[in-house]
Design a protein around this nucleic acid. Structure first.
Length: 508
RNA sequence: GGCGCCAUGGUGCAACGGUUAGCACGGCAGUCUUUCAAGCUGCAAAUCCGGGUUCGAUUCCCGGUGGCGCUACCA
């Protein structure tokens, strides 16, 4: 018999990772980026990506938000292989685990009222000497009052005032250290004495006496049961990881690989929140960002492929993503760069990939005509292709480019002010309309010949006519080249629009 | 307050003991032009501070400072 091979030789199983949001808000960009990393990792490794809804906080939980979070993930194209599992449906599992830990001595019942645990800090008790000595802001930044005691008497089997429903706390093994390896942050170790006896199971509330697990218990029990191999999550959980490692041990399960990813901050370097404006991925979808552009952009927040490549379509992201490329530094969310990515995708994507998004945008703004999807598909493609070099967001197709999809549009006041100044214009544009109407064939060059001939005959610069005509035809100063625009709009529409503009042209 | 993490232009990332410290966004200027973008060219802009280690530190160590995180019967 050969000696057992070293475990290093064993083929590593396909990784299983998860994204575990709480339905206490929308899917924000930080959560989305965490989900993206999990997804990229699982796809790169050919593993499994599962979803778990951590909805154990009955007070903050809002079930109606779950669908919005899932929508956000779908919009981003982050498809999951299992779930979503709901922790609220698994409450007995956590209670059983907690009681098992009590039975084994790894946990104990705690009868302390929640607010008393930890005790008060005498230093903080005293009123601040000299009002205003310390700037208010500095005071607020200190956060919650410091805790002095991290052990209570219940730990040693203090007589239970048994009328009170107890919580279950973890009995942190004193006098030892807990170590673990984080793929991103390296080897970590902490003195157990610094870890409080954290709550596993909250004391039952209400007549039904439901005992809810805390995050620590729920996450660990589920990660064990769901055979999670890699926990990829925000670095805000780094400090809590030792507790979970302790839990894994007590539960007799090997800890997974941990990979904590840096946080995403707002422009003011504080954690992203509502204050920073748009922070939900849904708001970016509504604003007209392309999911793939958003994906590309957020993948680069706290990760890099190791070289200077930035524009990476999803397949390339999947191919190049490794945890080794994850950085340890918090990143600031830079909207300007996100917009740049969006313009890149708007311009570089094969047109046909873009059409469904433009269609959705036009439907949203009620400008869509179904013929464009079938009999006039070529026209639609050509128009989108003409427009897209000047678009930054999908919204642009129904905003400034509205006149390409509707006869109802307004003349932009600034465009009028800039290009309709010359008082010869009404007469000139009337002649232009006549000339164009007389054209036997409608083409870019034919239109251009008519306009330039007219300009020469009238002794004006072609630019005068071009710019004025553009405003008359599409209502905007910013638009694609005029003769391409004319071709796409068609002769009837162009002539009609030129003539329709004449009254407005005469009045100031 | 305690414990911890992090630190390259304004922003996102490269350089993982030896480079004129690189790329991109943003900014500025020029160019192109039919408006506006895009594109192209160029410019300004960074190794937080102080000590070590080393022939040599952006890089390794220590201290400081700053930012962030955790310190809940939230997740």
């Amino acid at each position: 018999m050969a000696t057992p091979s070293h475990s290093g030789n064993a083929p590593s199983p396909k990784p299983r990772v998860r994204f575990a949001p709480s339905p206490t808000g929308y899917l924000h960009v930080g959560g989305a980026r965490t989900a993206l990393f999990n997804w990229l990792f699982s796809r790169h490794q050919g593993g499994t990506f599962l979803l778990r809804v951590e909805d154990t906080d009955v007070d903050r939980n809002r079930p109606e938000l779950v669908e919005g979070i899932l929508d956000g993930l779908r919009w981003l194209g982050l498809d999951w292989d299992e779930g979503p599992y709901f922790q609220s449906a698994r409450l007995p599992v956590y209670r059983a685990a907690a009681e098992k830990l009590v039975a084994s001595g790894a946990a104990y019942y705690c009868y302390c009222p929640p607010e008393k645990y930890g005790g008060d800090d005498p230093a903080e008790e005293a009123e601040p000497e000299e009002e205003g000595k310390e700037p208010k802001e500095a005071r607020e930044k200190k956060g919650p009052a410091p805790r002095r005691v991290i052990r209570c008497n219940c730990r040693d089997g203090q007589p239970a005032s048994s009328e009170q429903a107890p919580a279950i706390r973890f009995r942190v093994p004193l006098g030892a250290r807990t170590e673990f390896e984080d793929v991103v942050f390296g080897a970590r170790q902490v003195d157990n004495d610094e870890i409080e006896d954290f709550v596993l199971l909250r004391s039952p509330k209400g007549p039904d006496g439901l005992a809810l697990p805390t995050y620590q218990l729920g996450a660990v029990v589920d990660d064990i049961e769901m055979r999670i191999t890699h926990v990829i999550r925000g670095a805000d959980h780094l400090s809590n990881t030792p507790k979970q490692v302790l839990l894994y041990r007590a539960l007799g399960a090997p800890p997974p690989v941990f990979a904590h990813v840096p946080l995403i901050l707002g422009p003011d370097r504080t954690r992203l929140s509502k204050r920073h404006g748009a922070t939900s991925v849904g708001s970016y979808a509504e604003e007209g960002f392309l999911p793939e552009a958003f994906r590309n952009f957020s993948a680069l927040l706290g990760w890099s492929p190791g070289d200077d490549t930035e524009f990476m379509r999803t397949d390339e992201l999947v191919r190049r993503f490794t945890l080794a490329g994850v950085s340890r530094t918090n990143a600031i969310f830079d909207r300007a760069k996100l917009e740049w990515f969006n313009t890149q995708y708007l311009q570089r994507l094969p047109v046909d990939e873009l059409l469904p998004y433009v269609e959705a945008e036009l439907k949203r703004s009620r400008l869509w005509h179904t013929e464009w999807a079938n009999t006039q598909r070529d026209w639609f493609r050509q128009t989108v292709d003409l427009l897209r070099p000047r678009t930054r967001l999908l919204r642009d197709f129904s905003n400034w480019a509205r006149a390409f999809f509707s006869e109802e549009f307004a003349y932009d006041p600034q465009a009028r002010a800039k290009f309709w100044k010359d008082e010869r214009l009404p007469a000139l544009l009337a002649k232009l309309a006549d000339g164009l109407e007389a054209l036997p064939e409608w083409s870019h060059d034919a239109c251009e010949r008519v306009l330039r001939a007219l300009a020469e005959a009238e002794g004006v610069k072609a630019g005068l006519l071009i710019n004025a005509a553009r405003v008359a035809i599409v209502g905007q100063a910013v638009a694609p080249p005029l003769f391409d625009t004319m071709v796409v709009l068609g002769k009837d529409s162009v002539v009609r629009r030129l003539r329709r503009a004449l009254p407005a042209l005469r009045s100031p």
